[in-house]
Structures are given as C-alpha cells and as structure tokens.
C-alpha cells in the first residue's frame, strides 16, 4: 500500500506541469534507499491515472545509487559498485573506508529521494 500516496503525488505533480496536454512518458529517479518499489508504483499509477491526461503514460525509472560526499575535500563517491550488498552494509563499509583524501567526514548526499525529472507531453494540436 505504501507507494500509493507517493504515486498520487507524482501523478498530481506531472499533471500540474503538463498544462492540459496528454502525458506520454514520465521520467523518475528513485534513490537506492528511498524505499520505493517501482513495480508497486506502476500498479498504483495504472489505477490512479485512469481517466486523467496521464492515463497510459509510460513510467521510466532511473535508480540512483547511494552517493557520499566528503566534507573535507568535497569529492563525491558513487557507491554503485557495491549495489549487490544490503544498503546498511554499503554505508557501514563506506564510513569505515573514508575518502581517498584520508578524510573521515562523509555525508550521504544522494540515493535517498524519489524525484520527478521530466515528462513528455503531446504537442498541442
């Protein structure tokens, strides 16, 4: 059930930006730790979009890996190489490794949110 409210929110947001035109495609970014299951979003979307200008739109999910930023040197590390491990293990190891600069002050800066990147709409006829 848990994806229903976010699916309603993304549908509303997409319709708001469509300016009354029919939406054919919706591009989404899902953080590895956003606790969002794309398949469930698809199911709810099909149901919620019925009768709206987004009915039948294709959803495109781009998974966003965990990203850490070093507070000492500002460099970012993408943790996608460890994507087969559970997220908390990835995090634990990343904190233990630290940054290439020797810094140990890392912050999680990516992979925790669910964003709407863009939509494709039919041109006005």
């Amino acid at each position: 059930m848990h994806e229903m409210p976010v699916t309603q929110a993304l549908l509303d947001l997409a319709l708001e930006h469509a300016g009354g035109r029919r939406i054919t495609d919706i591009y989404l970014q899902v953080g590895r730790m956003a606790a969002i299951v794309p398949d469930s979003v698809e199911v709810f979307f099909e149901y919620l979009s019925e009768g709206t200008l987004a009915e039948g739109a294709r959803l495109h999910f781009e998974m966003v890996p965990l990203e850490m930023t070093c507070l000492d040197c500002g460099s970012k590390q993408d943790l996608s190489a460890w994507a087969d491990q559970p997220p908390h293990t990835i995090l634990q190891n990343a904190f233990a490794r630290g940054c290439a600069c020797g810094g140990k002050n890392l912050r999680v800066t990516g992979g925790v949110s669910f964003g709407l990147v863009s939509i494709d709409v039919e041109p006005e006829s």
Partner: peptide, 12 residues
C-alpha cells in the same frame, strides 16, 4: 513530443 523538465521531489 515535447519534454518538460520538472526536477522536483514527488512530494513537492
């Protein structure tokens, strides 16, 4: 097709 950038969290 016209692509419209949104770039927002879905809970905007």
């Amino acid at each position: 097709m016209v692509n419209i950038p949104v770039l927002k969290e879905v809970t905007e």
